[in-house]
Simulated scan of single mutants.
Amino acid sequence: MQMPPQPLADDPPSIGRGSLSITPNVVLNSSVEPHPCVSLVPDKGSDSELDSDDDLIPYDMSEDKELKKTKAPVYIRDCIEVLTGSEDADKWEVTMEILEILIQRNSAAAQEVSVELAKVLLHLEEKTYIEGFVQLRQRALVTITVIDPIPVAQYLTSQFYSLNYSLRQRMDILDVLALAAQELSQPKTAGKSQAPSTQSLCKQILPGNHTSQDWRKVVEERIKNKTRRFAKGPSQAEPACGPNEFSSVAGHFFFPLLQNFDRPLMTFDLLGDDQLVLGRLAHTLAILMFFAVNTTAAAVMGRALLEFVWALRFHTDLYVRQGLLSSVSSALLSIPAERLLGDMMEELLETQCWLADVAEKDPDGDCRSLALHNLLLMENLKKKLETAPSF
Results as ranks from 00 to 15, higher is better:
M1Q: 09
P5H: 07
T23S: 14
N25M: 12
V27C: 02
C37L: 11
C37T: 14
P42W: 07
L50G: 01
E63T: 04
E66R: 13
E66M: 12
E66Q: 07
L67K: 09
L67E: 11
T70R: 09
I76G: 07
I76F: 08
R77H: 08
R77W: 04
C79G: 06
I80H: 02
E81Y: 01
V82N: 01
K91A: 05
T95G: 04
M96N: 04
I101V: 14
I103F: 04
A110W: 07
A110P: 02
L122P: 06
L124C: 13
L124F: 08
E126S: 15
Y129S: 09
E131L: 09
V134R: 07
R139W: 06
R139C: 11
V142P: 02
T143Q: 12
T143P: 02
V146R: 05
Y155P: 00
F160W: 03
N164R: 07
D175N: 10
D175V: 15
V176I: 14
L184T: 01
G191D: 07
G191E: 02
K192H: 10
A195Q: 07
S197I: 05
K203V: 04
K203N: 10
H210Q: 13
Q213W: 03
V219I: 15
N225L: 15
R228Y: 11
R229K: 11
F230T: 13
S235G: 12
E238P: 05
F254T: 11
L257E: 02
L258H: 00
N260Y: 13
F261E: 05
F261Y: 14
P264S: 10
D273A: 15
Q275C: 10
V277H: 01
R280H: 13
R280E: 03
L281D: 03
A286P: 04
M289I: 04
A292E: 01
A299T: 15
M301R: 06
R303G: 15
A311N: 09
H315E: 12
T316L: 12
D317F: 02
D317V: 14
R321K: 13
L324R: 06
L332K: 00
L333R: 09
S334W: 05
P336M: 08
L349K: 05
E350W: 02
L355I: 02
A356H: 08
K361A: 06
D362Q: 10
A371Y: 00
H373R: 13
E379L: 14
L381E: 07
L385D: 01
A388W: 07
